[in-house]
Design a protein around this nucleic acid. Structure first.
Length: 448
RNA sequence: GCAGCAGUAGCUCAGUUGGUUAGAGCACUAGUUUGUGGAACUAGGGGUCGGUGGUUCGAAUCCACCCUGCUGUACCA
């Protein structure tokens, strides 16, 4: 809705951008603190790279068009194209290439950062979102890939999910590679269409996927998607091969062994997962939630995975001569928060301030004294930030969910005691200032 | 991008076959209580009915185009 009063700025947000409120942010902070704690124990180091990069260094090349806006936000600065990063992997590859001689090999880093994509937003998907990535650069050892899976499941469980609520699906690019060789598909374009089709198996089932491998498919809105035009004999071979639930490529057999050593079993082999089309070269994995996610109208929506990753052995090499095989995982934090908030009642401690009501400006020093006592004792406290009648002050305290209000007016000054009102019970008590911290403590611990 | 559905106060919506000053609930403001919130009552503010153009004596209501949102689909490095 674009409601712009004449001559006034719009209060609407650009498509795909949102304000995020405290409730969501606190859950996000909780998840982030779990991530950091696990990262440290797994031996990753923390890295931050800038939001903007030169367009060509993050894998976008300048098209003939006026601006490189294929999925990225870009602008021209001093004759060079800059783009907001669209993931954290491309900047990592750039960082490694730039600092190759100084960094340890292998290099293990994790990163939290906002990324931007100039594409259509969907349920739980925005054009600006927070990602968390962990990567190993400079090792071919599948121990790394295995550890990423173990680690992400440890993070999810720390966030309160049980083993039955999520699953790590794993596969390898080598499976489809060998398959395409077997049925003689060499056309790169056709391969891509076929890969995309296979990626949709969780939503469309085999029937839909076979349509896409063949002539094409009409979806329920009536829109038609062109297919890969494979021979029906080949489509059958594909289905047969991928329906086998036993992994046959070397890399998968190896990684399953390592999982065993970790006693890790909350995964399943699923040859239909594909992930990004271009850069993965080996083992790939995807993190899926096993419960329904609803939108704010209560409808169950197609939520998809909350993250995934895999092995990309050639990415760093794009920058020059360093051969740095790598593997990494990337999690969409906002999507994880969105899903988790539906699943769990998060008991996040919120320290809402005790409100000290203002009766008389001349008593301001008394109020400051009370406030200081409370803050020094570790409580959140504030002198009512305004000038209003007591009724307004109480309404304010109620609105911000303050645990208690402190009244110190004429009556209290005479008696030398202050009145403490418990805002959840409504109970009022006359207490000595020395007892204040203790009384507040009682009220807060009762509320939690 | 393509397709379906939708767009009336801050929010959720009503508005009859086009007809006088466009409604409700919640929220908001003030008061009933000159020192007390979460309940009640009273009064009040707030809408060029997504936008533009058209049909008509007359349009929130009909038509066209555009914008925005939702859902699916495509793309997703």
């Amino acid at each position: 809705m674009t409601k712009e009063k004449k001559g006034k700025p719009s209060k609407e947000l650009p498509l795909g951008f949102v304000d995020r409120q405290e409730k969501e942010l606190l859950v996000r902070d909780f998840i982030i603190s779990n991530i950091k704690e696990v990262m440290i124990r797994y031996g990753f180091q923390y890295l931050e790279t800038p939001s903007f990069e030169y367009t060509d260094s993050i894998g976008k090349f300048l098209p003939d068009k006026e601006r490189p806006d294929e999925g990225v936000f870009s602008f021209k600065d001093e004759n060079k194209w800059l783009s907001l990063r669209y993931d954290l992997t491309a900047p990592l590859a750039r960082y490694v290439a730039k600092n190759y001689l100084e960094i340890p090999k292998p290099f293990k880093r994790y990163q939290l950062g906002t990324v931007w994509r100039n594409e259509k937003p969907g349920p739980g998907r925005f054009r600006e979102f927070l990602q968390f990535d962990a990567d190993f650069v400079g090792t071919k050892n599948l121990q790394a890939d295995a550890e990423l899976c173990v680690m992400i499941s440890e993070i999810l469980e720390k966030c309160g999910l049980s083993k039955s609520e999520y699953i790590i699906k794993i596969s390898s690019r080598k499976i489809t590679e060998e398959l395409f060789k077997k049925i003689n598909i060499n056309d790169n374009k056709q391969k891509l269409i076929a890969l995309r089709a296979l990626d949709k198996i969780d939503r469309l089932g085999w029937d839909g996927v076979k349509e896409l491998l063949g002539a094409g498919r009409k979806d329920k809105s009536g829109d038609f998607t062109k297919g890969a035009n494979l021979k029906s004999k080949d489509i059958e071979t594909i289905e047969e091969t991928l329906k086998k639930k036993s992994p046959e490529t070397e890399d998968l057999i190896e990684i399953l062994k390592i999982f065993k050593g970790y006693n890790f079993s909350n995964f399943e082999f699923d040859p239909s997962i594909i992930r990004g089309l271009e850069y993965y070269t080996g083992v790939i994995f995807e993190v899926n939630l096993k419960f329904d996610v609803k939108n704010n109208k209560g409808q169950v929506i197609q939520f998809g995975s909350i993250g995934g990753g895999g092995r990309y052995d050639n990415l760093v090499n794009n920058f020059g001569n360093y051969d740095a095989p790598a593997t990494g995982i990337s999690i969409g934090l906002d999507r994880l928060v969105y899903a988790l908030m539906q699943k769990k009642e998060f008991k996040i401690k919120q320290f809402k301030p005790v409100v000290i009501c203002v009766f008389d400006k001349n008593s301001i020093n008394e109020y400051i004294n009370i406030q200081t006592i409370l803050r020094k004792a570790g409580f959140s406290a504030e002198i009512y930030p305004g000038e209003s009648k007591l009724k307004k002050q109480m309404e304010y305290a109620n609105k911000i969910k303050s645990p208690a209000a402190i009244l110190y007016g004429e009556n209290e000054i005479k008696s030398g005691k202050l009145t403490l009102r418990n805002l959840s019970s409504g109970e009022e008590k006359s207490i000595d200032i020395k007892e204040l911290a203790n009384e507040i403590k009682k009220i807060i611990s009762n509320n939690n």
